[in-house]
């Protein structure tokens, strides 16, 4: 069972990764990235890292990729396709990718494959559980953990600041929100009391549903 799931998940992961760079339609590219991430989560499950698998799905497939899908569906358009790159990028990109691949292969062949004939590392039942990970984060890896959380806080505040600055620039044309509020409906409209007929009905008949 384990090898079967492993091969299905790894083939899916590789196919998803290839799809991301090979598909011309950006929406399908994003979707194949989602497929790739889900297959990675399945591989994590096989490695007894169920917390990591859940985090992978929640954070990446359910959070980050949702925003990708959002933007691509609005901006990318289904009919448009990405054009082929040109110029020096065409030469530089394969060189970079090739060097990266070579480095990965050296690292893999140099270390990971020593254990290929054995049963793998011994793990306890609690390995990869949320409790275990939480303890490690708050003891052994406390400093990197706190630094990462500080970085996230800075990023969050930065995002709020950027969003606020953009709305502050629209001085000439009043923001839609304020314009809508200045013509606020009479008090009591849209309430249950209005529907029940205690006061005159504003803006036409109250519909069903």
């Amino acid at each position: 069972m384990t090898p079967l799931i492993f091969f299905i998940a790894s083939i899916g992961a590789i196919a998803g990764a290839v799809g991301v760079i090979a598909l011309r339609n950006p929406f399908y590219g994003v979707l194949s990235l989602v497929g790739h991430l889900l297959c990675l989560a399945a591989l994590f499950l096989l490695l007894h890292a169920e917390f990591l698998a859940a985090a992978q799905v929640i954070v990446y497939a359910g959070g980050v990729m949702v925003l990708y899908v959002f933007v691509v569906a609005y901006v990318g358009g289904s009919g448009e396709s990405l054009g082929a790159s040109h110029g020096w990028l065409r030469i530089l990109t394969p060189v970079f990718v090739g060097v990266l691949l070579l480095e990965l292969m050296v690292a893999t062949l140099g270390s990971g494959l020593k254990a290929i004939g054995t049963e793998g590392a011994d793990i306890q039942a609690s390995f990869g559980s949320p409790a275990e990970i939480g303890e490690l984060l708050l003891t052994r890896f406390l400093f990197p953990f706190e630094v990462a959380s500080l970085l996230l806080l800075v990023a969050a505040i930065g995002a709020v600041g950027l969003a606020r600055r953009r709305s502050g620039f629209t001085v000439g044309d009043a923001p839609l929100d304020a314009a809508a509020r200045s013509v606020s409906p009479p008090k009591g409209s849209g309430t249950m009391a209005e529907a029940a007929g205690d006061r005159p009905v504003f803006g036409g008949k109250v519909g069903d549903q």
């Binding site: 859940a54 799905v57 929640i58 497939a61 359910g62 949702v66 899908v69 569906a73 559980s129």
Partner: peptide, 25 residues
């Protein structure tokens, strides 16, 4: 009854989004 418990539900909730989104798109 996985050790990640309720996170399991959130993981599938995250995937459920694609059902609605892809259906609409």
């Amino acid at each position: 009854d996985p050790s990640i418990g309720i996170l399991y539900a959130f993981a599938f909730g995250g995937i459920a989004f694609y059902g609605l989104m892809l259906g609409g798109w």
